[in-house]
């Protein structure tokens, strides 16, 4: 029976990993292409959660999940054009400071508009409840969430690997100067990457709002995990982030199964171990401009 419980935790950890992935992948994309550690990524996630709660009131839950990433993506356009764009070539410390400041402004705006107290959010009752497959229990909602993540993931992968858009973005990650020399302006591509990245964060916010506390500082909570995932996965690697997210989810679940008190620390220990063995992360590529 013990082994069944353990497998149950591992499978649940994989589902949880999907949940982290949505935030971490966008963070990694913006980092890879623009060289900017977007500390305000969590703020977009929080804004997404709040927008989805408001939209749900008028249109219902499913439309809210569709509208929110679009709305957050539009915010992303302004963010990229007026803020991030100024810092691609600058000292990384400046972009760290400016995105950190932006995160604080975002959190305080949420506090001013909606208050510090958490706001209520529920999912439609038909989505609640378990699915029992054999000995395993799953949350129906999380399986659905996993399916959405898989679709988004497939879409992003296709976009990056099978389209001309993706070729330019991947080339831009490795050789921005060469891409420019070939007469391709990277700026619109950057805008699109940021729209995608923060849009995913917004989608994450909309999907997590019914199962976590919606409060102004929720972005800070998710950022720690997202960072750890990106660092473990390795810079510039799509599959690295996917692998790392799943690994973090599984390690956390298994740790809680055996040593509950170490549950929240487990991902940091994992990060430590991975960095000792592979300083570039699990599948991290060598990126010239960061060396």
């Amino acid at each position: 029976m013990q082994i069944v419980f353990l497998i149950e935790q591992i499978v649940n950890g994989l589902v949880l990993g999907g949940y982290y992935l949505l935030i971490a992948l966008g963070l990694s994309l913006i980092f890879s292409v623009g060289g900017i550690v977007n500390l305000s990524h969590g703020a977009f996630y929080a804004v997404g959660a709040y927008i989805s709660v408001e939209v749900t009131k008028y249109l219902g839950f499913v439309p809210a999940v569709v509208v929110t990433p679009v709305a957050v993506g539009i915010l992303g356009i302004f963010f990229e054009r007026h803020i991030l764009r100024r810092f691609y070539a600058a000292d990384p410390i400046l972009s760290l400071l400016v995105t950190f400041g932006f995160a604080m402004i975002g959190e305080q705006l949420l506090r001013i508009i909606w208050g510090a107290a958490p706001i209520p959010a529920s999912m439609p009752s038909m989505l609640k409840g378990p699915v029992i497959i054999g000995d395993f229990l799953f949350s129906q909602y999380r399986l659905l969430l996993l399916a959405v993540v898989a679709v988004v993931l497939a879409g992003i992968w296709y976009l990056l690997n099978k389209t001309s858009f993706g070729r330019v973005v991947r080339a831009g990650i490795q050789q921005p100067d060469m891409v420019a020399a070939l007469g391709i302006r990277l700026k619109p591509y950057m805008t699109s990457v940021v729209i995608l990245g923060v849009g995913m964060a917004g989608l994450g916010g909309a999907l997590f709002a019914p199962i976590s506390v919606v409060h102004p500082a929720m972005g800070v909570e998710i950022m720690a995990v997202a960072f750890v995932v990106v660092i473990i996965g390795g810079l510039g690697s799509f599959w690295g982030v996917v692998l790392a997210a799943l690994l973090v989810g599984v390690v956390r679940g298994v740790t809680i199964h055996f040593v509950p008190a170490a549950g929240e620390a487990s991902m940091y220990v994992l990060m430590f171990a991975v960095l000792l063995a592979r300083p570039r992360g699990l599948l991290g590529e060598r990126i010239e401009k960061f060396e």
């Binding site: 419980f5 229990l137 949350s139 999380r142 976590s212 506390v213 679940g253 809680i256 549950g263 929240e264």
Partner: peptide
Amino acid sequence: LIATDVTDFSPYLLK
């Protein structure tokens, strides 16, 4: 015992 910064309870729910 649950750490104060735990936001995901799913492993505990399985336990």
